[in-house]
Design a protein around this nucleic acid. Sequence first.
DNA 1: ACCCTTGACCCTGGGTACGG
DNA 2: CCGTACCCAGGGTCAAGGGT
Length: 552
Amino acid sequence: MANNANAGAAFGLEDVPDLPEAPTEQPKYNRDYHRLFVKFMSWLHKRTYTKAARFQPSALAGIQPHHVADYLKWRAYGTTDVDFKDLEQNPTCRSSTLEQDKKAISFYMPIKGATWNGTSGNPTKSDPVNEVVKEVKKAETQHRGKKSCATRDLTETEYRKVVHELYGKGSFESTIRTACMLKQQVHLITRTDDISKLKYSDYKPHPDFPFALSCKVHWSKNISEERQCPDQIILGSMDTDFCAMLGLANYMEASFNYGYGAAGREDAFLFTPESDPKLAPKHCNAAYRNILKAVFLSAPFLAVALLIAGVLGSHSIRKFAATLARGMGATADEVDIRGRWKARLSGRVVDAYISPEQPWIDARVAEKLCMGAPIAYKLHPDAKRVTPDWLIEHVVPRTHAFYDGVNDISLHLALPLLWAALDESWEERMEPPVRVRIQDAYERIKADVPVGVNPVVKVPLSIWTHNTKLHINEIEPMDTGGGGGTAGGTTGTTGQASTRQVANQSRQVTAMQTQQQVRTNEEILTRIIAQHNQLQQLIAQKVGPATVRLLL
DNA sequence: ACCCTTGACCCTGGGTACGG
DNA sequence: CCGTACCCAGGGTCAAGGGT
């Protein structure tokens, strides 16, 4: 770009003032790159620049590829005298660190776009520079040099442990809210910051299926394109540790008692009472990660997690969800769609999000994420006195009042919440006033359902597609009498119905096996935790509590 | 000519250490 | 306890080049 003093006049813009002389060149500056670039220049000139230093483009014209390459070698190996074939010489930083350096230097180069042609161009875009990065990458794959800092995915056992550790201890925020966030994060395969941005208004009744919700996930990247925030389906899970509907119901009805939702139906963030659009998600995300971190560092959790090598981070939860869906049979591409990743195989398919096939792929992956089985919460046929009006008045009054008739999801949430309030296993997992209120109200009308029977039943769902159209059916409860033939198909039912029955049977068998596995795991875990506590006491006796903390 | 892969670059966020 | 510096991962765009 030529610096033309009369540029304004040249383009016929009369009101642009002429400059008395050609403008002096302005040093470039980038907040994210400057620190790294100063480091490079300090190395190059063998002196220490402060971060206030600025460099004129003309002063940078002499930088050659070998300068940059030597710098990267120095960064990775501590010396410029490097023999890549020498397996004793191992890099002390990751290749991504070098790439970041390279980008930083590249940003400041006078000629940025053109690759180095031997005499001019961008010296960072050159073979000697790329070679260093490649060699460090190679060393990484050979397990030489610096270890990766990538976090591994959570295992199912660990996930359950987190959920169980959360409930029953501490404030509403750190228990019920965090457990709800966790369940949404897994069900929607999101990053932690995406979940922190959710608003009450992002949840709506699903347009096609009365037992499901739909949710719009806004994520941090490229939010300018509204079409990239698709509505995604939320289904209930047989396994309550995974049930996003139940988690949401349990959280939302109580949330209004803590000042959440004050900003109104349209603007209020779901997981923070703050309303500043910039700060609220940031603080919410930080709080969420801090609570998870505390759980990750708690002794009972560590007793499980230490069995597996690798570092855990908040991204581990998203990886867990993706791995879970893959393990249940979803393809990588399907998981990409549910997780709102760009299609991996063809980088140019920008329209992946608006593809007509997306809704049913989304639902199929959602199904995989419903541990046990995807379910609909339905009323027991005898529970005739549990009417919508009753549910609104006694189970979800606050939620109903908040939505005020617009995309009201309170009745969707009422059934899971009623189920939980009347289920013993949720004694410790609910906000006590809400639970007591529902129980008292139910006490007065329950006569028509047998004592000890929950008026809400979980009906497994069968999800299938026909001509890329999504269908979800409720599966009839199976007779308890031994049917004998599992896959015989000798009954007179249609092919489709019997296929679904077989699928249902195998699903139920899988669910039973899963539950058995969980029970076994829990027994093992109890033993491990006991041993862990013993060990901890032993260490405390020997070396004192300060050292114990370090060991953990 | 078109599709797909690959390489290069850009930008943001997570995690940790450290100092005030 | 909080802000800042630093290292690193990873999701994104764009363009060149190879295959059909």
